[in-house]
Design a protein around this nucleic acid. Sequence first.
DNA 1: TTCTACAGGTCACTGTGACT
DNA 2: AGTCACAGTGACCTGTAGAA
Length: 255
Amino acid sequence: MMIRQSFIFLDGIGTVRERRLWEKGILSWKNFLESKKIKGIPEKRKSILDREIEEADFNLNRLASSFFFMRLPRREHWRLFSEFREHACFIDIETTGLSAERNDITVVGVYNGREYKSFIKDINLEEESLKRELEKYPLIITFYGSAFDIPFLRKKFPTLSFEKPHIDLCFTSRRIGLSGGLKRIEEGLGLEREGDIKGMSGFDAVRLWKKWEVYRDRRALETLVEYNRIDVENLSPIAEHVYEELKKAVFADFV
DNA sequence: TTCTACAGGTCACTGTGACT
DNA sequence: AGTCACAGTGACCTGTAGAA
């Protein structure tokens, strides 16, 4: 539960000061609150920080993730994973191209760790129902979604709200030395793909949609949705792995 | 208390990579 | 193709420690 070891959301505390706290043996919110005095933090400031930590604890206990959305730097949203994993959703979209201006969304896949839902253009992809689905989850997890999926969804569905924590596995993976795109990272972790899906790329998703749209090839649509389902479901084990590794890399030295 | 030195936080800017 | 968070870098600002 990395978030309860974190101080980086406090005013005036960055990576360096947080590290100094850990070095002093202040490894959790509890430790911090129980320390009467901390060298480097004057009393008056300490009591302000105490209140901020109590506020964080209050919000965490209620799964009120917007508190952390406002306070945590983006690149540290991964720290929320273990507290929110049961309430997180993984999102992945397929489109007719890379430009949100010129292209359309064809499939939105949402996976909550147990159940996969697909929203398909011209069938059941509607702003209101997608909005209702996404509102259920206080944390979203994507691969490169911060530059692709989320801006694309925003453009096409302006009433969707993404004012909540978002773990982008592309950047968190890079921090533990895994780079080179989703498929390569899957290979690195031994996640296998089977059947029609094996060897497919995002560009194939564009072609499959065309086959469905122009020729009404039902098999093409099924394959597209299956591809989307695998993409989004594979994010879950990647998230688990990246969280554990990043936690080790950042924090293990101090425990 | 007041002053100075400086550690460290933050912001602006640039180049890069990965998404369909 | 269009997007944008990230890392890296440098400038600037703030707040703390330590001395008088």
